[in-house]
Amino acid sequence: MSFYHDHLLEQDFYPVVRFYYYKEWQDFKMQVHSHEAIEIMYVLSGTCLIEVDGKTHKLKKGQFIFIDGHVPHKLHVEPDKSCRMSNIEFKFQKLQTVFPSFRDIVSENQALKLLTETPQSYLLFHDSSDVSHCLDSLILELDRKEKSSVFTEQLLLGQIFIRIAELAAQQQDTSDAHVYIQKSIEYMHQNYDRDIRVKDVADAVHLHPGYLHRIFKKAMGTSVNGYLINHRMSKAKELLKRTNITITDIPHYIGMNSQQYFSTIFRQQTGTTPKQFRKESRYKERSEITGEYFKHSVQ
């Protein structure tokens, strides 16, 4: 049964581990296969290649993959390489236990609810050690055999599911943020010559200005306004070096309608005035041309 099957949220089912191990693989190549059980493969050391659903991924220490049931996959450890991993395979079935069923846990955890609503054949993660600890505890519990507790197994599996769901939500947030940041940068590159503000950028990507500011600064190391100013100054330098546009007109070409503000920002960033920057740039360019001329003349 798939991790995303509707029956899991309609009736009381429980995850049950059918197979588990710690294993160090060396120069190993598995045939492509699939099985009913859902699988978690966690790399403890070394590296390996996982081919799943027609795509190949390289996993290293601290990374793991969650593969849904009936999804074709194989493991490959390259020659002269090794990979130690922990692994569990589980199915869902009905049990007699006082522990909440899978649908009960889903109803109480928003991240897990979102995960079950977004079916994917597999998920790749970089763990912060939480899942590794839960897997270790689960395997030790399963090793106790007749002394193992169904309740404890369900508790540990529930913790693993919730942590995986939280990691998936974090990855989605990061992915979404990246998309918004790229769209914001594109908008600024296309409109830097206009009198735009942070609010205009936020409106263009349909975000609240405060939220855009937060994710942009975290990813880029500067604010939206700071990035826009830097881009405008970069364009101003090009205009000063490559054109004869008057210095008083240049601010209008880069969306800064105040000559005084432009000169102040330009000096803060370059340590010189626009006039001096143009003079030094052209002197340098003439010197390079002259140098090249004498170089070829001597040859």
Score class of each variant (00 low, 15 high):
Ile160His: 00
His126Met: 03
Ser128His: 14
Ala165Pro: 04
Leu138Val: 06
Glu166Phe: 09
Leu112Trp: 06
Gln120Val: 09
Leu167Pro: 00
Gln154Thr: 05
Ala168Glu: 03
Phe125Ser: 06
Phe161Gln: 02
Leu123His: 06
Leu155Thr: 04
Ser132Cys: 15
Lys113Thr: 11
His126Trp: 14
Thr116Phe: 07
Ile164Cys: 05
Ala168Gly: 02
Leu156Lys: 07
Leu112Glu: 06
Asp143Pro: 02
Arg163Val: 12
Asp127Phe: 08
Ile160Gln: 01
Gly158Trp: 00
Leu115His: 05
Ser148Trp: 10
Phe161His: 06
Ser121Cys: 07
Leu114Asp: 13
Asp130Val: 11
Glu166Asn: 15
Ala168Leu: 04
His126Ile: 12
Lys113Asp: 10
Glu117Ser: 04
Glu117Lys: 11
His133Glu: 13
Leu115Thr: 11
Lys147Gly: 01
Ala168Phe: 04
Ser129Met: 12
Ile160Cys: 02
Phe161Arg: 11
Thr116Met: 04
Lys147Asn: 12
Thr118Ile: 14
Ala165Phe: 04
Leu167Ser: 07
Ile164Met: 09
Leu157Trp: 03
His126Arg: 13
Leu142Gly: 00
Asp143Tyr: 09
His133Met: 15
Arg163Asn: 13
Leu157His: 03
Ala165Lys: 03
Thr116Lys: 05
Leu112Val: 03
Gln154Ser: 11
Leu115Phe: 14
Thr116His: 07
Thr152Ala: 08
Leu156Arg: 00
Ser148Cys: 11
Asn109Gln: 03
Thr118Leu: 14
Ser129Leu: 12
